[in-house]
Nucleic acid binder design. Structure first.
Lengths: 176, 176
DNA sequence: CTCCCCTATAGGACAAGTCTCATATGGGAG
DNA sequence: CTCCCATATGAGACTTGTCCTATAGGGGAG
Protein backbone atom coordinates (compact mmCIF):
# COMPACT_ATOMS: atom_id res chain seq x y z
CA UNK A 1 0.00 0.00 0.00
CA UNK A 2 2.83 2.39 -0.82
CA UNK A 3 0.80 4.08 -3.52
CA UNK A 4 -0.84 6.11 -0.77
CA UNK A 5 2.57 7.28 0.32
CA UNK A 6 3.97 7.86 -3.12
CA UNK A 7 0.97 10.08 -3.81
CA UNK A 8 1.39 11.89 -0.52
CA UNK A 9 5.02 12.51 -1.45
CA UNK A 10 4.09 13.95 -4.81
CA UNK A 11 1.28 16.08 -3.40
CA UNK A 12 3.72 17.43 -0.81
CA UNK A 13 5.67 18.96 -3.66
CA UNK A 14 2.63 20.57 -5.25
CA UNK A 15 -1.16 20.06 -5.13
CA UNK A 16 -2.34 18.03 -8.09
CA UNK A 17 -5.37 16.51 -9.74
CA UNK A 18 -5.72 12.79 -10.27
CA UNK A 19 -5.06 13.24 -13.95
CA UNK A 20 -1.90 15.22 -13.33
CA UNK A 21 -0.75 12.68 -10.77
CA UNK A 22 -1.06 9.89 -13.29
CA UNK A 23 1.14 11.76 -15.74
CA UNK A 24 3.65 12.72 -13.09
CA UNK A 25 3.90 9.17 -11.83
CA UNK A 26 4.39 7.79 -15.33
CA UNK A 27 7.05 10.35 -16.14
CA UNK A 28 9.00 11.04 -13.00
CA UNK A 29 8.76 7.95 -10.82
CA UNK A 30 7.84 5.46 -13.54
CA UNK A 31 11.22 3.74 -13.24
CA UNK A 32 10.37 2.41 -9.79
CA UNK A 33 6.63 2.76 -9.49
CA UNK A 34 3.61 2.46 -11.72
CA UNK A 35 0.00 3.19 -10.99
CA UNK A 36 -3.31 2.53 -12.61
CA UNK A 37 -5.44 5.60 -13.27
CA UNK A 38 -8.48 4.08 -11.60
CA UNK A 39 -6.43 3.19 -8.57
CA UNK A 40 -5.08 6.72 -8.28
CA UNK A 41 -8.59 8.17 -8.05
CA UNK A 42 -9.61 5.60 -5.48
CA UNK A 43 -6.50 6.23 -3.44
CA UNK A 44 -7.07 9.99 -3.56
CA UNK A 45 -10.61 9.49 -2.26
CA UNK A 46 -9.20 7.33 0.49
CA UNK A 47 -6.67 9.99 1.45
CA UNK A 48 -9.42 12.61 1.64
CA UNK A 49 -11.61 10.27 3.68
CA UNK A 50 -8.76 9.73 6.11
CA UNK A 51 -8.05 13.44 6.41
CA UNK A 52 -4.58 13.12 4.89
CA UNK A 53 -5.47 15.29 1.91
CA UNK A 54 -8.07 17.88 1.02
CA UNK A 55 -9.90 18.25 -2.27
CA UNK A 56 -10.60 21.61 -3.86
CA UNK A 57 -12.71 21.80 -6.98
CA UNK A 58 -11.58 24.17 -9.69
CA UNK A 59 -14.49 24.89 -12.03
CA UNK A 60 -13.58 24.70 -15.70
CA UNK A 61 -16.04 25.53 -18.46
CA UNK A 62 -14.44 23.91 -21.45
CA UNK A 63 -13.44 20.65 -19.76
CA UNK A 64 -14.42 18.57 -16.73
CA UNK A 65 -13.85 20.26 -13.40
CA UNK A 66 -10.50 19.80 -11.79
CA UNK A 67 -10.16 18.35 -8.31
CA UNK A 68 -6.96 19.72 -6.85
CA UNK A 69 -5.64 17.66 -3.95
CA UNK A 70 -3.32 19.01 -1.32
CA UNK A 71 -1.75 17.25 1.66
CA UNK A 72 -2.88 18.24 5.12
CA UNK A 73 -0.63 18.44 8.17
CA UNK A 74 -1.83 14.97 9.04
CA UNK A 75 -0.81 13.84 5.58
CA UNK A 76 2.69 15.24 5.97
CA UNK A 77 3.00 13.57 9.36
CA UNK A 78 1.91 10.26 7.85
CA UNK A 79 4.40 10.71 5.03
CA UNK A 80 7.27 11.33 7.43
CA UNK A 81 6.22 8.42 9.58
CA UNK A 82 6.25 6.14 6.55
CA UNK A 83 9.59 7.46 5.32
CA UNK A 84 11.32 6.56 8.55
CA UNK A 85 9.43 3.31 9.20
CA UNK A 86 10.86 -0.11 8.56
CA UNK A 87 9.91 -1.59 5.23
CA UNK A 88 8.88 -5.14 4.83
CA UNK A 89 10.48 -6.15 1.57
CA UNK A 90 7.84 -7.25 -0.88
CA UNK A 91 7.95 -10.88 -2.01
CA UNK A 92 10.24 -11.63 -4.91
CA UNK A 93 8.41 -12.54 -8.06
CA UNK A 94 10.33 -12.81 -11.29
CA UNK A 95 8.31 -14.37 -14.09
CA UNK A 96 11.29 -14.45 -16.38
CA UNK A 97 13.32 -16.49 -13.92
CA UNK A 98 10.34 -18.74 -13.31
CA UNK A 99 10.26 -19.45 -17.02
CA UNK A 100 13.95 -20.02 -17.26
CA UNK A 101 13.87 -22.39 -14.32
CA UNK A 102 11.52 -24.72 -16.16
CA UNK A 103 12.74 -23.98 -19.66
CA UNK A 104 14.69 -27.21 -20.10
CA UNK A 105 11.42 -28.62 -21.40
CA UNK A 106 11.96 -26.47 -24.48
CA UNK A 107 14.40 -26.98 -27.36
CA UNK A 108 17.62 -25.01 -26.76
CA UNK A 109 16.79 -22.73 -29.66
CA UNK A 110 13.57 -21.65 -27.98
CA UNK A 111 15.48 -20.94 -24.78
CA UNK A 112 17.89 -18.75 -26.73
CA UNK A 113 14.90 -16.85 -28.06
CA UNK A 114 13.65 -16.24 -24.51
CA UNK A 115 17.06 -14.99 -23.46
CA UNK A 116 17.37 -12.73 -26.48
CA UNK A 117 13.91 -11.29 -25.94
CA UNK A 118 14.90 -10.53 -22.38
CA UNK A 119 18.07 -8.86 -23.58
CA UNK A 120 16.12 -6.67 -25.97
CA UNK A 121 13.70 -5.62 -23.25
CA UNK A 122 16.44 -4.91 -20.76
CA UNK A 123 18.40 -2.98 -23.36
CA UNK A 124 15.39 -0.83 -24.11
CA UNK A 125 14.83 -0.20 -20.44
CA UNK A 126 18.47 0.82 -20.00
CA UNK A 127 18.29 3.13 -23.00
CA UNK A 128 15.12 4.73 -21.65
CA UNK A 129 16.74 5.30 -18.26
CA UNK A 130 19.90 6.73 -19.78
CA UNK A 131 17.87 9.02 -22.01
CA UNK A 132 16.37 10.78 -19.02
CA UNK A 133 17.98 14.17 -18.82
CA UNK A 134 20.37 14.48 -15.91
CA UNK A 135 20.63 18.02 -14.55
CA UNK A 136 23.89 19.65 -13.51
CA UNK A 137 24.96 18.10 -10.23
CA UNK A 138 24.10 20.49 -7.45
CA UNK A 139 24.55 19.99 -3.76
CA UNK A 140 20.81 19.53 -3.30
CA UNK A 141 20.03 16.46 -1.23
CA UNK A 142 16.71 15.85 -2.92
CA UNK A 143 18.33 15.89 -6.32
CA UNK A 144 21.05 13.52 -5.21
CA UNK A 145 18.46 11.05 -3.97
CA UNK A 146 16.29 11.28 -7.05
CA UNK A 147 19.27 10.73 -9.31
CA UNK A 148 20.25 7.80 -7.13
CA UNK A 149 16.94 6.06 -7.82
CA UNK A 150 17.66 6.46 -11.51
CA UNK A 151 21.18 5.11 -11.06
CA UNK A 152 19.69 2.12 -9.28
CA UNK A 153 17.67 1.22 -12.34
CA UNK A 154 20.71 1.63 -14.56
CA UNK A 155 22.86 -0.53 -12.28
CA UNK A 156 20.35 -3.36 -12.24
CA UNK A 157 19.77 -3.19 -15.98
CA UNK A 158 23.52 -3.48 -16.56
CA UNK A 159 23.79 -6.36 -14.11
CA UNK A 160 20.98 -8.12 -15.93
CA UNK A 161 22.68 -7.64 -19.29
CA UNK A 162 25.96 -9.01 -17.96
CA UNK A 163 24.15 -11.98 -16.49
CA UNK A 164 22.38 -12.59 -19.80
CA UNK A 165 25.81 -12.69 -21.48
CA UNK A 166 26.97 -15.49 -19.23
CA UNK A 167 23.70 -17.36 -19.69
CA UNK A 168 24.08 -17.22 -23.45
CA UNK A 169 27.67 -18.42 -23.22
CA UNK A 170 26.57 -21.33 -21.05
CA UNK A 171 23.83 -22.20 -23.49
CA UNK A 172 26.37 -22.25 -26.31
CA UNK A 173 28.60 -24.58 -24.34
CA UNK A 174 25.78 -26.85 -23.22
CA UNK A 175 23.51 -27.02 -26.21
CA UNK A 176 26.21 -26.71 -28.84
CA UNK B 1 -0.93 -15.49 -12.99
CA UNK B 2 2.36 -17.34 -13.21
CA UNK B 3 1.74 -19.27 -10.02
CA UNK B 4 -0.40 -21.63 -12.08
CA UNK B 5 2.53 -22.22 -14.35
CA UNK B 6 5.15 -22.46 -11.66
CA UNK B 7 3.02 -25.14 -10.03
CA UNK B 8 2.52 -26.94 -13.32
CA UNK B 9 6.29 -26.88 -13.76
CA UNK B 10 6.89 -28.39 -10.35
CA UNK B 11 4.16 -31.00 -10.75
CA UNK B 12 5.70 -31.98 -14.08
CA UNK B 13 8.79 -33.09 -12.17
CA UNK B 14 6.83 -35.15 -9.67
CA UNK B 15 3.23 -35.30 -8.40
CA UNK B 16 2.86 -33.44 -5.14
CA UNK B 17 0.42 -32.42 -2.46
CA UNK B 18 -0.33 -28.79 -1.69
CA UNK B 19 1.66 -29.04 1.48
CA UNK B 20 4.68 -30.45 -0.30
CA UNK B 21 4.38 -27.82 -3.01
CA UNK B 22 4.52 -25.07 -0.44
CA UNK B 23 7.74 -26.46 0.98
CA UNK B 24 9.26 -27.03 -2.41
CA UNK B 25 8.43 -23.52 -3.55
CA UNK B 26 9.90 -22.00 -0.40
CA UNK B 27 13.06 -24.02 -0.69
CA UNK B 28 13.85 -24.44 -4.34
CA UNK B 29 12.31 -21.51 -6.17
CA UNK B 30 12.02 -19.15 -3.23
CA UNK B 31 14.71 -16.87 -4.62
CA UNK B 32 12.49 -15.78 -7.50
CA UNK B 33 9.02 -16.79 -6.45
CA UNK B 34 6.99 -16.96 -3.29
CA UNK B 35 3.54 -18.32 -2.73
CA UNK B 36 0.98 -18.22 0.00
CA UNK B 37 -0.20 -21.60 1.26
CA UNK B 38 -3.84 -20.68 0.86
CA UNK B 39 -3.22 -19.52 -2.68
CA UNK B 40 -1.49 -22.77 -3.56
CA UNK B 41 -4.53 -24.81 -2.56
CA UNK B 42 -6.84 -22.53 -4.48
CA UNK B 43 -4.61 -22.65 -7.54
CA UNK B 44 -4.46 -26.45 -7.36
CA UNK B 45 -8.26 -26.61 -7.29
CA UNK B 46 -8.33 -24.31 -10.29
CA UNK B 47 -5.90 -26.52 -12.19
CA UNK B 48 -8.04 -29.57 -11.48
CA UNK B 49 -11.19 -27.68 -12.51
CA UNK B 50 -9.53 -26.73 -15.78
CA UNK B 51 -8.36 -30.26 -16.46
CA UNK B 52 -4.68 -29.32 -16.26
CA UNK B 53 -4.08 -31.52 -13.24
CA UNK B 54 -5.70 -34.50 -11.57
CA UNK B 55 -6.14 -35.07 -7.86
CA UNK B 56 -5.65 -38.45 -6.26
CA UNK B 57 -6.47 -38.91 -2.60
CA UNK B 58 -4.05 -40.98 -0.55
CA UNK B 59 -5.77 -42.11 2.62
CA UNK B 60 -3.66 -41.70 5.74
CA UNK B 61 -4.82 -42.84 9.13
CA UNK B 62 -2.51 -40.93 11.42
CA UNK B 63 -2.72 -37.60 9.61
CA UNK B 64 -5.05 -35.79 7.22
CA UNK B 65 -5.45 -37.43 3.86
CA UNK B 66 -3.01 -36.46 1.16
CA UNK B 67 -4.20 -35.07 -2.15
CA UNK B 68 -1.55 -35.91 -4.71
CA UNK B 69 -1.73 -33.73 -7.79
CA UNK B 70 -0.30 -34.73 -11.15
CA UNK B 71 -0.24 -32.80 -14.42
CA UNK B 72 -2.34 -34.06 -17.29
CA UNK B 73 -1.34 -33.94 -20.95
CA UNK B 74 -3.35 -30.76 -21.20
CA UNK B 75 -1.36 -29.37 -18.29
CA UNK B 76 1.95 -30.16 -19.95
CA UNK B 77 0.73 -28.55 -23.16
CA UNK B 78 -0.29 -25.44 -21.25
CA UNK B 79 3.09 -25.39 -19.52
CA UNK B 80 4.97 -25.58 -22.80
CA UNK B 81 2.75 -22.94 -24.33
CA UNK B 82 3.48 -20.62 -21.43
CA UNK B 83 7.21 -21.31 -21.51
CA UNK B 84 7.49 -20.20 -25.11
CA UNK B 85 4.98 -17.36 -24.95
CA UNK B 86 5.97 -13.74 -24.74
CA UNK B 87 6.01 -12.34 -21.25
CA UNK B 88 4.56 -9.03 -20.39
CA UNK B 89 7.02 -7.64 -17.89
CA UNK B 90 5.27 -6.99 -14.61
CA UNK B 91 5.08 -3.37 -13.45
CA UNK B 92 8.11 -2.12 -11.54
CA UNK B 93 7.38 -1.45 -7.91
CA UNK B 94 10.28 -0.75 -5.58
CA UNK B 95 9.14 0.54 -2.21
CA UNK B 96 12.69 1.21 -1.12
CA UNK B 97 13.34 3.48 -4.10
CA UNK B 98 9.99 5.16 -3.53
CA UNK B 99 11.10 5.98 -0.03
CA UNK B 100 14.50 7.20 -1.10
CA UNK B 101 12.96 9.40 -3.75
CA UNK B 102 11.05 11.35 -1.13
CA UNK B 103 13.55 10.96 1.69
CA UNK B 104 14.94 14.50 1.50
CA UNK B 105 12.15 15.39 3.91
CA UNK B 106 14.12 13.46 6.54
CA UNK B 107 17.29 14.47 8.37
CA UNK B 108 20.38 13.07 6.62
CA UNK B 109 21.04 10.78 9.53
CA UNK B 110 17.67 9.11 9.09
CA UNK B 111 18.42 8.63 5.41
CA UNK B 112 21.70 6.95 6.31
CA UNK B 113 19.76 4.60 8.54
CA UNK B 114 17.46 3.67 5.68
CA UNK B 115 20.43 2.99 3.45
CA UNK B 116 22.18 0.90 6.06
CA UNK B 117 19.05 -1.11 6.75
CA UNK B 118 18.82 -1.82 3.05
CA UNK B 119 22.46 -2.87 3.00
CA UNK B 120 21.89 -5.28 5.84
CA UNK B 121 18.89 -6.83 4.13
CA UNK B 122 20.63 -7.15 0.81
CA UNK B 123 23.69 -8.60 2.47
CA UNK B 124 21.58 -11.21 4.18
CA UNK B 125 19.86 -12.07 0.92
CA UNK B 126 23.22 -12.45 -0.81
CA UNK B 127 24.53 -14.66 1.98
CA UNK B 128 21.42 -16.83 1.80
CA UNK B 129 21.81 -17.22 -1.96
CA UNK B 130 25.48 -18.04 -1.71
CA UNK B 131 24.81 -20.57 1.02
CA UNK B 132 22.68 -22.65 -1.30
CA UNK B 133 24.66 -25.73 -2.18
CA UNK B 134 25.86 -25.71 -5.75
CA UNK B 135 26.21 -29.20 -7.23
CA UNK B 136 29.12 -30.28 -9.40
CA UNK B 137 28.68 -28.67 -12.80
CA UNK B 138 27.31 -31.25 -15.18
CA UNK B 139 26.34 -30.78 -18.76
CA UNK B 140 22.68 -30.99 -17.87
CA UNK B 141 20.69 -28.18 -19.43
CA UNK B 142 18.14 -28.09 -16.64
CA UNK B 143 20.83 -27.75 -14.05
CA UNK B 144 22.54 -24.98 -15.96
CA UNK B 145 19.30 -23.04 -16.13
CA UNK B 146 18.43 -23.55 -12.50
CA UNK B 147 21.88 -22.43 -11.40
CA UNK B 148 21.51 -19.44 -13.69
CA UNK B 149 18.41 -18.28 -11.83
CA UNK B 150 20.46 -18.43 -8.63
CA UNK B 151 23.29 -16.50 -10.26
CA UNK B 152 20.78 -13.87 -11.31
CA UNK B 153 19.84 -13.24 -7.71
CA UNK B 154 23.48 -13.03 -6.72
CA UNK B 155 24.29 -10.61 -9.54
CA UNK B 156 21.47 -8.26 -8.60
CA UNK B 157 22.28 -8.41 -4.91
CA UNK B 158 25.89 -7.45 -5.67
CA UNK B 159 24.76 -4.65 -7.97
CA UNK B 160 22.53 -3.36 -5.21
CA UNK B 161 25.37 -3.41 -2.69
CA UNK B 162 27.67 -1.53 -5.07
CA UNK B 163 24.97 1.02 -5.68
CA UNK B 164 24.42 1.41 -1.94
CA UNK B 165 28.15 2.17 -1.60
CA UNK B 166 27.93 5.04 -4.03
CA UNK B 167 24.77 6.34 -2.39
CA UNK B 168 26.47 6.38 1.00
CA UNK B 169 29.48 8.18 -0.45
CA UNK B 170 27.20 10.77 -1.99
CA UNK B 171 25.38 11.25 1.28
CA UNK B 172 28.72 11.84 3.01
CA UNK B 173 29.66 14.45 0.44
CA UNK B 174 26.28 16.17 0.48
CA UNK B 175 25.24 16.06 4.09
CA UNK B 176 28.68 16.25 5.63
C1' DC C 1 -0.31 -32.29 31.74
C1' DT C 2 -0.20 -28.70 28.71
C1' DC C 3 1.44 -26.31 25.03
C1' DC C 4 3.38 -26.05 20.73
C1' DC C 5 4.99 -27.90 16.36
C1' DC C 6 4.41 -30.98 12.31
C1' DT C 7 1.47 -32.90 8.99
C1' DA C 8 -2.49 -31.60 5.79
C1' DT C 9 -6.41 -29.09 3.81
C1' DA C 10 -9.34 -25.33 3.11
C1' DG C 11 -12.75 -21.40 3.85
C1' DG C 12 -13.67 -16.23 4.79
C1' DA C 13 -12.45 -11.67 4.88
C1' DC C 14 -9.74 -8.35 3.05
C1' DA C 15 -6.28 -5.58 0.29
C1' DA C 16 -4.32 -3.92 -3.85
C1' DG C 17 -4.41 -3.42 -8.35
C1' DT C 18 -6.03 -4.17 -13.39
C1' DC C 19 -9.27 -3.78 -17.17
C1' DT C 20 -13.31 -2.06 -19.10
C1' DC C 21 -16.74 1.19 -19.48
C1' DA C 22 -19.34 5.67 -19.03
C1' DT C 23 -19.49 10.63 -19.34
C1' DA C 24 -18.38 15.28 -21.31
C1' DT C 25 -16.20 18.85 -24.41
C1' DG C 26 -12.89 20.80 -27.56
C1' DG C 27 -9.51 20.40 -31.21
C1' DG C 28 -6.87 18.44 -35.04
C1' DA C 29 -6.14 14.80 -38.81
C1' DG C 30 -7.84 12.70 -42.67
C1' DC D 1 -17.95 14.54 -41.29
C1' DT D 2 -15.96 11.26 -38.59
C1' DC D 3 -12.64 9.51 -35.80
C1' DC D 4 -9.31 9.93 -32.50
C1' DC D 5 -6.74 12.38 -29.00
C1' DA D 6 -6.38 15.24 -24.87
C1' DT D 7 -8.56 16.69 -20.78
C1' DA D 8 -10.86 14.90 -16.48
C1' DT D 9 -13.35 11.87 -13.30
C1' DG D 10 -15.01 7.76 -11.52
C1' DA D 11 -17.86 3.19 -10.99
C1' DG D 12 -17.99 -2.07 -11.54
C1' DA D 13 -16.29 -6.42 -12.06
C1' DC D 14 -12.60 -9.19 -11.64
C1' DT D 15 -7.84 -11.16 -10.38
C1' DT D 16 -4.25 -12.17 -7.49
C1' DG D 17 -2.60 -12.65 -3.33
C1' DT D 18 -2.33 -12.15 2.03
C1' DC D 19 -3.85 -13.00 6.68
C1' DC D 20 -6.43 -15.31 9.91
C1' DT D 21 -8.94 -19.09 11.36
C1' DA D 22 -10.67 -23.98 11.80
C1' DT D 23 -9.94 -28.88 11.99
C1' DA D 24 -7.43 -33.04 13.62
C1' DG D 25 -4.11 -36.55 15.32
C1' DG D 26 0.69 -37.47 16.73
C1' DG D 27 4.98 -36.33 18.98
C1' DG D 28 8.29 -33.83 21.80
C1' DA D 29 9.62 -30.12 25.34
C1' DG D 30 9.02 -28.36 29.70
Amino acid sequence: MSLRHAILGLLAVRPMSGYELKKTIDESVGHFWTADQSQIYRTLSGLVDDGLAVRRTVVQDDRPNLHLHAVTDGGLAELDRWLASGLRTPPVREPFLARLFFADRLPVDEIRKLVRARRRETGELLAALEAIAVPEPSGDLGQVLRLATLANGVAHARAELDWLDTVERQLDRTGR
